[in-house]
Every structure is written in C-alpha cells, then in structure tokens.
Amino acid sequence: MFELLQKLNDHGLPYPDTIHPIIVHFVIAMVLFAFVCDIIGYFTKNARLFEVSWWNMCLATVAVFVAIIFGQFEAGLAHPYDMAQPVLSVHTLIGWSLSGIIAAITGWRYVIRLKTPDKLPVPYLGLGIVLTGLIFVQVFLGDELVWIYGLHTVPVVEALKEGLL
C-alpha cells in the first residue's frame, strides 16, 4: 500500500494541492449567502433577494456533490491513522447528509418559488438556521482534520511514507 505513496507529491496527491476544500468553500459561501439573502429579503420584502438566494442554492446543490467526489478521493489517498479515522468518518457522514439536505431544501425552495415567489414561509427560514448549524459543525470537523490531524500536510505524508504512522 505504501509504494503508492511514493508516486504522489508532498501532499500525498496526484495533483498540486487539495481540491476538496476549494470547492467546499464555494458551497459554504453560497449556502450561507443564500440564507442571508433570505433573511434580509424576508424582513425587507425584497423579492429580488429571494431570486439571488434561489440561484445560490442551485449552484450549491451541484457543487456539494463535486466537493464530495473530491473529498472521497482525497480521503482515500490520505491513509488516515487511527486517531484521525473517527473524525474523518463523522465528517464523511455529515458531508453526505448535507448533500441530501441541501438538495431537498433546494427542491422545497423550487416549489416555494413557483407558488409564492415574493415570500418565504417561516419554517423554511427555520430550516435555514438548522442548515447553517450543520455547516458550522462540518467546518469544525474539516478544520480538525487538517489543523489537528494534519491530513494531506507534508509532515504527516512524510511520516506515512516512512511508516511512522
């Protein structure tokens, strides 16, 4: 298994740097910005902000699946050691769950957009708060994988190559 690591770069990847975090940051920004637009649009009664929110959620729905594909690929190349594995497993589970949740919320948003494009129901905004909370938990776990456990960082990859982990 470790002979494969010799063909990868200093980060343990076949390409220059991790792609998963780049795409994930777009998803995070789009979902949070959509929620902010919804809140502001709800209180100001500005339907144009609902349109901005809708398109952000559409793009986030597509991007979250791309982020998961790269996340699964990069997690497989990380060869997580025993201490990192539980965090990675929870991060993976929440990531897949978020993809379904974001897709479902976007579907609900599509129905709302068709029926009442100029207003949002309060339960939809409440679900936006729950989604924001889940995203913050997911960000925390992702940060922990990089900053605490060092997945795809040069020292951890070198330790793996030398068989120290």
Rank of each mutant, 00 (worst) to 15 (best):
C37S: 13
P14L: 03
M1L: 14
L77Q: 08
D82V: 07
A159G: 15
H11A: 13
G150T: 11
E3P: 12
T153G: 09
G71R: 01
Y124K: 06
D143P: 05
P80S: 09
P80Q: 05
L164R: 14
W147H: 12
Y149T: 00
T153N: 04
E162T: 13
I23Y: 03
K119D: 13
G95R: 01
V87K: 01
E158Y: 02
L77V: 04
L145E: 01
A84I: 00
M83L: 12
K161S: 14
D118T: 14
L93K: 06
A67D: 07
P155S: 14
V52W: 06
D17F: 04
W108Q: 11
F35Q: 01
S53L: 06
G142D: 05
F140P: 10
L93P: 06
M57W: 07
A75V: 07
G133M: 08
M30L: 15
Y149V: 01
F136C: 11
V130K: 07
L141Y: 00
H79I: 10
G142A: 12
D38L: 02
I112M: 12
G12C: 05
L160G: 14
Q6N: 15
E162L: 10
I105H: 03
G100Y: 12
V90Q: 02
H91I: 00
F70Q: 09
V24C: 05
A60H: 02
S97K: 01
F73S: 04
A34L: 03
V64K: 01
D17T: 12
I102S: 03
I39S: 06
H79Y: 10
E51A: 13
Y110G: 12
G150K: 09
L134Q: 11
G12S: 08
Y81H: 10
I135H: 01
I68V: 15
V111E: 12
F65N: 08
E51Q: 15
G107W: 13
F136H: 09
W54N: 09
G12Q: 02
P21K: 00
K115E: 15
P14K: 00
Q85W: 07
Q72H: 06
F73H: 08
A104S: 13
V52D: 12
F35G: 05
E51D: 15
I135W: 00
H11L: 14
T106N: 01
M1R: 13
A47E: 15
I112A: 11
D10G: 13
V64W: 00
T132F: 04
L32G: 08
Y81L: 06
V90C: 01
I28P: 02
Q6C: 11
A67W: 00
N46D: 14
